[in-house]
């Protein structure tokens, strides 16, 4: 009887030690689920989801505080991917957070720009170059099209230009295959 209790206690202590050690040794920094969600999000950093950037939204989803259908730039496809990752049913985008738009980049009308730097402060990815009382310009390759620079501009000199399709960006379309009618449908 005593021996049995002793064995059980020893076992418990040994396993406890191993578990305690591995909890320290194999500690995972950060939230791996939030990382995975963040990798799916489009990184537009537009805040349309109601969170200040993609990372906070990812963390909110991971904690279950936000729904998966609040990201218009990610579109239906993004929702589908998130649903797959989290093992939930995909749902249509929440219209309250906006609707998907064609990919665009911001464009500053340099004739109108007064060099106030307000847009530079608003840009979440530092894609606007310029200085006080100097003309500003968008670094198009780094612009995510988040539109956050539009409201602060006091002279409304920023517009969103949809990215036109050119040769390097051209994609083959999904082939449309004319299927042969095998059986004539009856009736009119």
């Amino acid at each position: 009887m005593l021996a049995a209790i002793g064995v059980m206690v020893l076992l418990a202590v040994a396993i406890g030690l191993v578990l305690g050690w591995s909890a320290i040794r194999f500690k995972v920094e950060g939230n791996p689920l939030a990382e995975k969600i963040d990798a799916i999000l489009p990184q537009t950093q537009c805040g349309q989801c109601g969170f200040p950037g993609c990372r906070p939204y990812a963390e909110a989803i991971a904690k279950g505080e936000a729904d998966i259908n609040q990201c218009p730039p990610g579109g239906e496809e993004g929702v589908k991917k998130l649903a797959e990752l989290l093992g939930v049913e995909p749902k249509p985008l929440d219209e309250a957070h906006g609707t998907p738009k064609p990919k665009s980049v911001a464009f500053i009308d340099e004739q109108t720009c007064i060099g106030c730097t307000l847009c530079i402060q608003a840009c979440p990815v530092d894609a606007i170059s310029g200085a006080a009382k100097q003309m500003h310009t968008i670094i198009a390759a780094e612009c995510t099209g988040c539109e956050l620079c539009l409201p602060p501009c006091p002279v409304d000199c920023i517009s969103m230009v949809p990215i036109a399709e050119d040769l390097p960006h051209w994609k083959w379309k999904h082939p449309v295959v004319m299927m042969k009618k095998i059986a004539e449908t009856e009736g009119a």
Binding site: L41, P42, Q45, V125
Partner: peptide, 16 residues
């Protein structure tokens, strides 16, 4: 290409 652009945006946002 989109993935690379997103990675760049994330990096720049974090640096900001």
């Amino acid at each position: 290409k989109d993935k690379r652009a997103a990675d760049l945006a994330r990096e720049r946002h974090e640096f900001r």
